[in-house]
Design a protein around this nucleic acid. Structure first.
Length: 426
DNA sequence: TCTGTCACG
DNA sequence: ACGTACGTGACAGAC
């Protein structure tokens, strides 16, 4: 029983964050999260040992290559030392590179990628960074914290984030890698018990669906109803090209813009993320808001509301307060404005999946011992189910998740995947 | 304890 | 002219 959560609920109720409806959700959720922590998720210790051996060798090889190219040995985990070797000793060009807060030259991946052609060492170093992350954070540490049944139990704080999202720590199971090949190798080390499978259900494009719904943006709503590729449709509308003529590059820019708007991205931020000039970026944004004028209205209304009331809220009324929303300080004020734009979307998403977890508990988990909830990753629920029940549960779960919150203009789309390890969920 | 970096949604 | 995309947690270095 988590006393910490219960006292947090009281505190948030007293400060006005939770209304009655949301407080009920948080209270009903508490035992479910408790059970999820207790259940944990199994890893394959033998596989992790092999991974450790493999990655240690590759790290060693890469390290030696870097020392050879630099003609010296130095601490590859110290950004300061890296900057000195790359930019002072090897004299690699640093034009356009960002400075860090302490005025050192940044050695972050996006910065180094800009100068990748200037010296062979950059590519090797980026590879080292990725490998080292995989090793130090995941491969090396996970086996050490598994219990005697090889299951790892994360500390899940159901009220950890200001938007209503949950957080996961010690270990953080919400940031297990997936994008890189090595990342997927790590996912393959998470396995169900013998005779059981993983079953994952995730909300597809839920944040964009919510924006379309909240803003009542009919073109987007219609596009979701038709089941179109939403980024291609966006590109088609901005550039006035038929949807089936949109190339990869154009779609990518529309995708960056779609996500950027959820966070209050500026023209320059968009330019950087999409790899285009600020002028082009500004033009795209103008076109975007011309075509999706209700989105623009939503953004402006949200900021106005935040300035007037000092808070914004989700569809069901989970509030977030912004003490700096009327600050004289531009940096503080605009930061608060971006948070205000994001909260109703990210927070409603959190409300929806939390309510879904409660519905799943009532309708399935309490009645059936052949299924366990093991993890929530913001827009996805992962279950461990008896092999013979996979299809049956997939069907029921999709139905429950879809109906967690009913929106007038658009359905929530839920996709399910199953597999014998976390990588192969398909 | 802070900073830089990077893993996820 | 400002400074530049939301929400997190973990690791290693530097002090």
């Amino acid at each position: 029983m988590s006393l910490k959560t219960l006292s947090k609920i009281k505190e948030l109720r007293n400060s006005g964050v939770l209304n009655q409806k949301i407080e009920k959700i948080e209270r009903d959720l508490e035992p479910i999260v408790d059970k999820m922590i207790e259940t944990g998720i199994k890893i394959d210790p033998v596989y992790f040992e092999l991974l450790d051996k493999e990655i240690t060798e590759e790290l060693e090889k890469t390290r030696k290559k870097i020392y050879f190219l630099a003609k010296q040995e130095f601490n590859l985990n110290s950004p300061r030392r890296i900057a000195r070797v790359f930019f002072k000793d090897l004299k690699i060009q640093t034009i356009d590179l960002r400075k860090t807060e302490t005025l050192e030259i940044s050695t972050s991946t996006p910065e180094l990628k800009k100068i990748k052609d200037k010296h062979e060492i950059i590519g090797e170093f980026l590879h080292y960074r990725m490998l080292n992350k995989m090793h130090s954070v995941y491969i090396k540490t996970l086996p050490d914290i598994a219990d005697r049944h090889y299951r790892v139990h994360s500390d899940i704080d159901q009220l950890g984030a200001a938007t209503g999202r949950m957080t996961s720590s010690s270990p953080n199971l919400q940031n297990i890698p997936i994008h890189s090949e090595w990342g997927r190798k790590i996912r393959a080390g998470f396995i169900p018990e013998k005779g059981w499978s993983f079953l994952a259900c995730d909300y597809s494009q839920i944040e964009l669906r919510l924006v379309a719904h909240i803003a009542k943006e009919s073109v987007l709503l219609e596009s979701f109803r038709k089941g179109e590729d939403i980024h291609a449709r966006t590109a088609s509308e901005i550039f006035k090209i038929p949807i089936d003529m949109i190339d990869k590059e154009t779609r990518f820019r529309a995708k960056v813009l779609n996500f950027g708007l959820l966070y209050g991205m500026s023209p320059m931020g968009f330019a950087r993320a999409a790899g285009i000039s600020t002028e082009e970026a500004t033009d795209f944004i103008v076109q975007y808001f011309k075509r999706f004028s209700n989105i623009k209205k939503y953004l402006l209304n949200t900021i106005t509301h935040a300035k007037r009331h000092g808070h914004v809220e989700t569809i069901w009324g989970r509030k977030r307060f912004f003490p700096d929303i009327n600050s004289e300080d531009f940096v503080l004020r605009s930061s608060a404005e971006r948070m205000a734009i994001n909260h109703p979307i990210q927070g409603t998403c959190a409300d929806i999946i939390k309510k879904a977890m409660i519905d799943v508990q009532k309708k399935i988990l309490t009645k059936d011992k052949n299924i366990k909830l093991i993890l929530q990753v913001h827009d996805e629920l992962i279950f461990e189910v008896k092999d013979e029940n996979v299809q049956q549960f997939a069907h029921k779960l999709k139905d429950i998740l879809k109906n967690s919150m009913l929106l007038d203009d658009v359905d929530l789309l839920v996709e399910s995947k199953s597999g014998k390890n976390w990588r192969d969920l398909q």
